[in-house]
Nucleic acid binder design. Structure first.
Length: 134
RNA sequence: CUAGCUGGCCGGACGGCCGCUGCCGGGCGAACAGGCUUUGCGGCCACAAGCGCCCGGUGGAGGAAAGUCCGGGCUCCAGGGAUCGACGGUGGCGGCUAACGGCCGCCGGAGGCGACUCCAGGGAAAGUGCCACAGAGAACAGACCGCCUGAGCGGGGCAACCUGCAAGGGUAAGGGUGAAACGGUGCGGUAAGAGCGCACCGCGCGACCGGCAACGGAAGCGGCACGGCAAACCCCACCGGGAGCAAGACCAAAUAGGGGCGGCGCGGAUGGCUUGGGCAACCUCGUCAUCCAGGCAUGAUCCAGGCCGCCGCCCGGGUUGGUUGCUCGAGGCGCGGAGCGAUCCGCGUCCCAGAUGAAUGGCCGUCGCGGAGGGAAACCUCCAGACAGAACCCGGCUUACAGGCCAGCUGGCAAA
């Protein structure tokens, strides 16, 4: 029975953690960009084994009320899909785009599922392409 | 009924599934510590607080949370005194308040038929400055056209006189310019005019009266001047240390360039003598003389002071993470009383967000409200639902805002 409940959401907290995930693989949709990267061995503490998520909502997207709402919708969406599609030991960063405020919640969920799959499919070549630019 | 004015208030409601967070209660678990027992490993017992998980209960964004424009509380830093100056702010009077640049009441001015609204509303006879363009003249004013007078030179006439030109003088009533031209109207007066004189109006001064005051009224006096701008400098009165919860305090980790206390010494340069070392240049110990006396801490000055080097001991800074500050407060609500009111007093009652990559929600349904369309109606369909998210806390101001409610008052219409 405890498996049926979605696990509580573990979020990224420090700026350094956000910057590290930028080097990982990415997938863009209409309302957000998803970035993912497996945690290095020394970062995996015993307590935190689950997938962790971070949200980036820049000031360009609107005033504080709109930004808060975008963040809450994305967080609710992640809570619904992370059981099936997120992998433990991974860090994810979701960079919001302006349609995230208005698009139907169902399409938001569908986009998130697709993006999570694609991010896990082909991490290799994207990683290499990104690595040269850094 | 309608048009308006003022003040106050609200800022969708209910339900379902799934979440976040503070507090309270309960349960479970692990570690440490405690007691008993055992030679020991270990076993048993008990619960205060903390930690993790679970269950239940309960609280969880705003009237502006916003802009960060004022005023405070709180915290740290600086702060010896006096005087002067600088800078910033405020600006009718009285009151309220912890305080304010806020609020209330009153006064003055402007607007409105009215309810009522608006006003940085001290000083322009302390000084400096500006008042463009137009206009002749614009701040100790000014004769362009006019009007009046007119030396003199002409023309006509016997003469009285008529008439043309005209230097100069008088004149601010008329024209013209302008935002503004030494007050307006009338009568008298005059060569023409003019406060030159008079009446009324306006203006200035104003004994005295009323008011705590701002101010109001006003006998009488003055023939009329003293223009505007102080949101130009300025003058006057009053107020004002600085920085802000990333304040500040504590804990842990890893690394070195600060502080306190005690003792000793009392800056530098040059020269003389001197101790010790060196072949010597020179280095070194001490002392005397002369000269300069330095830097730091509010802007200046004055008075009174402090610190600077070496040794020993003790303690801590900056960074990252965590804890705290952190929400009970100039607090909300109700009743009663004082006051025109802002507000104050008394009693009762309530505890009402505390997050920190930052919670206070996500999705869905029903109803209600507003607009448009359809329909005879019940009703149906579509659209809209604002401004906006606490970050230490209060008191204000300002700005944004779909829609709606209540009370009082004013004008008009109708009825009684």
């Amino acid at each position: 029975m405890p498996a049926a409940r979605p696990p509580s959401l573990v979020s990224l907290k420090r700026r350094a953690e956000f910057l590290r995930v930028r080097g990982g693989s990415r997938c863009a949709t209409a309302s957000f960009v998803l970035e993912a990267k497996p945690r290095a061995q020394q970062d995996v503490s015993v307590a935190v084994r689950e997938a962790r998520f971070g949200f980036t909502v820049t000031k360009r997207l609107g005033k504080a009320v709109d930004r808060n709402r975008i963040k809450r919708r994305l967080r609710a969406a992640v809570r619904n899909v992370q059981m099936k599609h997120a992998r433990p030991g991974f860090d994810y960063v979701i960079v919001a785009r302006s349609p995230a405020l208005d698009t139907a919640y169902a399409t938001l969920l569908g986009d998130l599922e697709k993006a999570l799959e694609r991010v896990h499919e082909a991490p290799r070549e994207r990683r290499g392409a990104k690595g040269t630019t850094r």
